[in-house]
Design a protein around this nucleic acid. Structure first.
Lengths: 263, 263
DNA sequence: CCGTATTTGTTCGTATGTATT
DNA sequence: CAATACATACGAACAAATACG
C-alpha cells in the first residue's frame, strides 16, 4: 500500500480546496462526513482520518453539530524587535498596532512577589529562589486576545526605591523610565531570544487556540541591561504563532520598505 | 462525559512520564499498545487515541514495528540575527556554530534562473514574472540537516557584471562582498522578518520531521538594502522550530551575557 | 538470507454521546 | 423536541515495519 487511503482522500480534498473546485471560498463548509463517505466510497472512520490529516495541516477545522470548515488565516501583525535600546516594550507596541489601524488595549497588571525559578534566575543572574517581582498583563487587539506578557524585576530594585513596581497599577511613563528616575538604573541595551513551543492549557484557552497544541506560540525573552551590564529585568511575552510576525532592522533600512497590503 | 476516556488515559501517561514513574527516562519506550490496553481496560483504538494526543503534545513518538518512545528534545542552537549591517548570512553562521563546538557544513549551491513569484517579487520590488537568480543550499551541523537557504538576486545584478551569481559554485569571499566589488552595490542594512508555519513535504523529509506537520519551521526573510535603499537580495532560510532559537541584540549588551551550558 | 514473532499502521463495521440548528 | 453533524468508544481484521533467532 504505497499511500494510505485516508491520505489520498485528504490530498484530493486539499487540491479541491486550494483550486477552488469546492465552493469553500474561505471559511466555507466542506461536504459532511456522510456525503464524503458516499463520494469516496470509504468508511466514515477513514473519512475522519482524512479530515484529521487536513486539521494537522491547518487547512480545515471541525465544529461539532455544524460541520467542517476551511480555516481563515488571520492577517498577521508585524512587530519590530529592534527599537530604542533604552525603551520598554509597551510604548512601541501600542504605536505599532495603532499605526496598522487597530486598537490595542491591555489589562491592569497582576503583580506577585515570587521566588526566581530556573529560567528567571539564570536570565537575571540571581540565586535560585531569590525574590523577584512579577508583573503580568494580558493584551488585546480590537478585543481579541493577542499576547501575554510577564516582566520580572529583581527585588533589589524595590529596595532601591522603585516601590511602585509592587503596586498593581499601570506605570504610565513606562517601567524603564520609572526605574531610571527612581533608582538611577538606566537601560542601555537589551537582548531578545525567540523560541517556539506548543501552548500550555491556559495559553490555549486565552488565545482561543485548539486545545491539542497544533498551533504553537512564540515565546520572546527580553533581558534589559544597565550601563554597567547588570540585568535589570526579564520580560517574557507569548504570542500565538498563527497571527504574528517579527521584524528586525539592522543598519540603514529605508523608511517605508514594505508595501502596504493593497485592497 | 466531562473528559473523554482517551484524554484521561493520556493525562495519566503524561503524569507518569514526567514524574519518572514509568522507566522511560528520555528516549525510553512506553508499554506496548497491548499492555496499555490491559492496564487501562480500554480498547486498542482508545489507547491509540490517547497516544495520538501525547504525540500532538510533542511528548512521545511512535516507530512502526518498534514501539512508542518518549521524545528527546534536541539542544537548541541559538543564532544571532543582529550583526554586521553589510554582512552576509554565511560567515556569521559558520562562526557561531563553530563557537558552540559543532561542525557546520553546507552543500554546493543549486542555481536556477526563475521568474519572480508573488512574495519574491514584492520583497525585491520587481514586477511579477521578472527574472531572478535563485541560489539554494542545504546546511548541516554535525551531519544532521539544519537549515535550507535560498537567496534571490535580481537578474539586473548579473547584467551589471556579477556573472558568478549564476555559476553553481561557492562564492568564497561571500556574495555580499562579491557584489560590492563587481557591480559597486554595497549592502548597508537589512531587514529580517520571522514567521512560523508547518513544513511542506520536502522540508519534512529533509529535516526528518514527522510528515504530518506537527513540528513547525521558522521562515526568516532577509532583505538587503544598498546605499540608495535599493533591494539587492532576498534570503529565505527555513529552520526546524524544535532545535533553533534566535537572538537579537540592541544597544549595549555585555560581552558574554549568557551562561555557557555546564557539563 | 529467511522465516517468525512483535509492534504499530490502516480500514472496516457498529453503537452511542454531545453540540448545534 | 427532532434532525443533523461531529465526537467518542468498542471490536475485528489485515498490512507493513522491525527485531531476532
Amino acid at each position: 500500500m504505497a499511500e494510505p487511503l485516508y491520505r489520498m482522500i485528504a490530498e484530493d480534498l486539499r487540491r479541491k480546496i486550494e483550486s477552488g473546485e469546492l465552493p469553500t471560498a474561505a471559511g466555507g463548509p466542506l461536504p459532511t462526513e456522510a456525503e464524503l463517505q458516499k463520494e469516496f466510497g470509504a468508511s466514515r472512520n477513514t473519512i475522519r482520518e482524512a479530515i484529521k490529516w487536513l486539521i494537522t495541516l491547518d487547512l480545515v477545522e471541525t465544529r461539532p453539530g455544524q460541520g467542517t470548515f476551511v480555516v481563515e488565516k488571520p492577517v498577521p501583525l508585524v512587530s519590530t524587535l529592534t527599537g530604542d535600546p533604552g525603551g520598554g516594550t509597551t510604548a512601541p507596541y501600542f504605536a505599532e498596532v495603532a499605526a496598522s489601524g487597530r486598537r490595542p488595549t491591555d489589562s491592569e497588571p497582576k503583580v506577585e512577589i515570587q521566588h526566581a525559578t530556573g529560567a528567571v534566575a539564570r536570565a537575571l543572574r540571581l540565586d535560585e529562589g531569590a525574590q523577584v517581582v512579577s508583573r503580568h498583563q494580558q493584551r488585546f487587539i480590537d478585543d481579541t486576545p493577542w499576547s501575554l506578557q510577564t516582566t520580572f524585576y529583581p527585588m533589589s530594585l524595590v529596595e532601591l526605591g522603585a516601590t511602585r513596581l509592587i503596586l498593581p497599577t499601570d506605570i504610565a511613563e513606562g517601567a524603564v523610565n520609572y526605574l531610571a528616575e527612581e533608582c538611577d538604573r538606566t537601560q542601555v541595551g537589551y537582548r531578545d531570544t525567540i523560541s517556539v513551543r506548543p501552548p500550555d492549557q491556559d495559553e490555549a484557552w486565552f488565545f482561543r487556540l485548539p486545545a491539542d497544541g497544533r498551533v504553537s506560540v512564540f515565546e520572546i525573552h527580553r533581558v534589559g541591561f544597565d550601563e554597567e551590564g547588570r540585568r535589570m529585568r526579564l520580560t517574557v511575552t507569548v504570542y500565538p504563532a498563527d497571527r504574528n510576525r517579527f521584524r528586525i532592522d539592522v543598519g540603514a533600512v529605508p523608511r517605508r520598505p514594505v508595501t502596504a497590503p493593497s485592497g
